[in-house]
Amino acid sequence: MLVAKPGLDGHDRGAKVIARALRDAGMEVVYTGLRQTPEQIVQAAVQEDADVIALSILSGAHNHLFPRVMELLAQKGVNDVLVIGGGVIPEDDIPFLKKAGIAEIFGPGTPTKATIDFIRANLKR
């Protein structure tokens, strides 16, 4: 699992909560910290051989940053990684993000169990 925070917002409580929940579900979670560029996230995912990338964002730049991550993964020929998103993301944006290849979006208040179950059911390898 790679948990990453793309973009410029400085709040990672949500990312840390999900990282802990995933850890307690028995997963190995690489947490890369705040203010990551899509390039850094993709490079980390490749080097860590991540099965899942979880992107957390609060800044509102998801429509730019999430598809950019997908684009870079495709450029590197990585097509077997499950990418999910979380944070403050308006309902209306979700179809666009899913079309870009984000498998699911988990908004505020999602029980962590729902995220964990989704990951287990949708791993690509």
């Binding site: 995933l22 850890r23 307690d24 028995g26 190995e28 947490y31 910290g33």
Partner: peptide, 10 residues
Amino acid sequence: TGGAILGDRI
């Protein structure tokens, strides 16, 4: 649980 948080990369 066997889980881990790997934070050195930060």
